[in-house]
Nucleic acid binder design. Structure first.
Lengths: 208, 208
DNA sequence: ACCGTAAGTTACCGGCGGGTCAGTTAACTC
DNA sequence: GAGTTAACTGACCCGCCGGTAACTTACGGT
């Protein structure tokens, strides 16, 4: 006999679906790139059918936009919080931020979004602009403010704040791109040690 | 009458074709991205038919590989030359290299190849690896050698040479990515001035 | 128990684009 | 010139994938 309590072929879970689909999309986009992943791949990984995805997102492009927006929001909040908290001790805050950034960008999963943005920005300039405004500009702006605060307290030299911000972040990002995009060998140095060595150099300078 | 000396509908130019096709491919890939450009777009821009392209390149992927290889070669030679020439005056050489890099990466055309590599490296890991070995590793290696030379001459502090190389190049590349990939506003500061300010910071340090 | 509806599914369509093929024509050789 | 070869083209093929339409099923309300 067929049990009257057989488990349903699928469940109605309208609340959870969008997040699950976006999660699957991030994973697939990271592994194969946006253009090469089929909507059906995303659907399968999220545990529903392709048409199911189209119940929540109007198009593949829309899926990408929604993904970036979702991922950007928490980063933007985190940046603002860190910057605000560090005004009293700019040097300490900068140390903490660079260390945290070095740690975060060492994790392929946490570098996934920048990776995707980098690869699709050519085809979707709005996405590039969105990411720049909400993450890059915001983050560099926060560091620049910390630098200004440090100048006023007499700890930092009075150089261009944007240059200072880039000098702090640039090498970390270069390393991450080299590692995750170009497939570089991580080597034996830990993210923390790398951050330390980098900070020492930028703070004290390269000259003898 | 139909002139017997009418100009031919096309010319046989087997020697020039490959280069022209690669040039067209670079332009199209830069404008639209690799995935979004059709082989026919490349063909049209190169002035022949789509089937003509397939006389010289086995596939679209092959076209991409050939392009990267062609573009990488001169850069690799240039790097080697600069590094060799600068051993006597490491500080001067580093100044020159950073200034030249800042200048070069400000030009969208000269940043086109890195841009394309960045965007396709996910789908073609061999291309990422190739670029890393022949350009990034090579370039950073040359800078690291200059740093070692400077340490021995007593001009530079004895820090990790790879860290030093990244600190010199990272901020410049970050700025280029911000400018050309994310669509940042160039602003009024000239590439030369930016290089100067950056060098001043990294050489003398951020601390008061 | 039985609706009504929203959440799913399966099956399909259409066109786009990578790649090929059969024929054409430029240009070199003798 | 006639013959040969290799460069080049136009027209075509076909598989893939974004998107949709028509149908089913879970499930809350009465």
């Amino acid at each position: 006999m067929a049990s009257p309590h057989r488990k349903p072929r699928w469940r109605r879970r309208a609340d959870a679906r969008p997040d699950e689909i976006l999660g699957a999309a991030l994973a697939e986009f990271t592994e194969r790139g946006f253009e090469a992943t089929r909507v059906e791949d995303v659907a399968r990984r999220a545990g529903l059918s392709k048409a199911g995805v189209y119940l929540y997102f109007a198009s593949k492009d829309d899926l990408l936009r929604a993904l970036i927006e979702r991922e950007v929001a928490p980063v933007a909040r985190g940046v603002a919080a860190l910057a605000e908290a560090g005004k009293a001790d700019p040097l300490g805050a900068i140390r903490a931020i660079v260390a945290a950034l070095s740690q975060a960008t060492s994790d392929p999963a946490r570098f996934a979004v920048p990776r995707v943005v980098l690869s699709v920005a050519g085809r979707f300039p709005e996405i590039g602009a969105y990411y720049r405004e909400h993450v890059v500009e915001h983050g560099l702006g926060a560091l620049a403010m910390l630098h200004r605060a440090g100048v006023e307290q007499g700890v930092f030299r009075d150089v261009d704040s944007r240059i200072a911000a880039r000098a702090l972040v640039g090498p970390v990002m270069l390393h991450a791109a080299w590692l995750h995009v170009l497939g570089g060998d991580p080597g034996k140095m830990s993210p923390a040690a790398r951050a330390e060595a980098h900070l020492d150099l930028v703070l004290k300078g390269l000259l003898q």
